[in-house]
Every structure is written in C-alpha cells, then in structure tokens.
Write a protein that binds this DNA or RNA. Sequence first.
DNA 1: ATGGCTCTCGCGGAGAGA
Length: 256
Amino acid sequence: MRIATWNINGLRARMEFMALWLNDRKPDVVGLQELKTPTEEFPHDFFTDLGYHALVHGQKSWNGVAILTRSPCESVQIGLPGEDDWGSRLITADVGGLEFTTVYCPNGKSVEHDDYPNKLSWYESLCAHWSSGDHTKRVLCGDFNIVPEALDSWRGEKADGDVFHTVAERSRFQNLLTLGLTDLHRHLQPEEQVFSWWDYRGGAFHRKQGLRIDFILGNDSVRDLVDDVVIDRDYRKKKDGLTASDHAPVYADLRI
DNA sequence: ATGGCTCTCGCGGAGAGA
C-alpha cells in the first residue's frame, strides 16, 4: 500500500498537476492539505475519473483537508475537537483497517504574532485528541509547519528561534512523537538532509533553500511495515507548463 | 532593505502562505 501526503496550495489551481502525479505514482491513499475550496465545491467527478474517492473537510479561501482513497471509505473524524475556530485542518478515515489522519497545522506567522500562541495550543489539542484514540495501525500525516531539527532547515542552526524553529514548537512536535509515533522518513534516513517545501521566490528550489515540514508519522505497527519513504521533489518542478505547489508530495510504501 | 511567487476573492489590490 502506498500512502501519501501533499499540501497542494489550492485544489482548483492544481487539479491538472495532481492528475499527472496520481497517474504517475499511483498512491492508494493521499492526505491533501490547503484545498482552499468549500466542501460542497469539491470536484468529486474529476477524481472519480482518475480512480479515487474523496472524503473532504473543506473551507472557502483557506485551509481545507481531504483524503483520497481507491475504494469508498468512512470518515471517522472531521475537524480537530475544540479547534473549529482555526479552520478545517484535520480529517480521519478508516482505510481498510488503517486509521489514516491528515492535518494542516497552523502556520503561526511569526513568534510575535497572535497566531503563534494559537499554533502552540492547537498542537496541544492535537496531542490530547490523538492520545484519546486507539487503533492497531495509525498514520498521522500532513503539513506540520514545524522544522523538527536543524538538519531539516537549509539554514541549519542559524534558523533556531525563528518561527517553525523554536524550542516551544519543537517540543510540541516531540510531544506528538512521544505518544507512540515515528517520523517514517527520518527513521529510514537518520542523517539525510531532504526538504519538502521551497519558497516560490528567489529561485529557492534551485538554490536548495528549503525546509522539511511535511511528514508521515506512524505508530509502531506501521513503522514495522515501512519499505520506503520518498520526498517527491521532481513534482515540485513545473510539469507540461503547469505550476507546482510549493510543497512536494511525500509518500511511503507499506507492506500492507 | 522594501516579501523578489502564487493562491483566493473578485475585478483592484490585499491578505496569507512559510
């Protein structure tokens, strides 16, 4: 089973590009973030033609998450409890016995901005919600908007203390892992510097100026089934004249 | 240095992203 996460930066602007990737990589389950589309305007027919069903938690203009699956699935959670004011940022599905959650964590903007403490409390709600659940095989993937360690930022330790790189944010992310989750990419590649996001501006992609902020986390059962994790940087490039998202897709192959 | 792209909303230019 191939599972994936991808912040697409606008569903309607990315549909043709997504079709290229889905047909090429053929994932079985995909967590999507930043749809910027209301739930009722999700183009189900477009994805049905590509062989996917969608569970959607959308929103006008901003945020929005969805899960694509090969067979119709039930959603088991829509929205992070207690955090409805902060947008549509979490959805969970039961995919043939795998509990699959995708999240779009708040950005925070800067350590001085009002959004920053809200980002920290959103993470605390996520930890509380996660620890209240239980399942044999669990995946939590998405755009976490936190750089876990200096290795994950092109600026290394020079970025310490900036938003995404603060001790407070990193400890919130660690708290999640402490609940029994493993960062599958870092598990297989302990030393490798690979990024999942690059700024559109200033040729950041070609200058290798990126961050790793998109993760697939799995519980112990999932971790033991992982064959490979790929940060698909080729799909951060323009394809057939189509603009890419500023995030690359990330996928993992599981022996399921 | 001044946010150097791209998205949405909506029809001009502002706000958000990270």
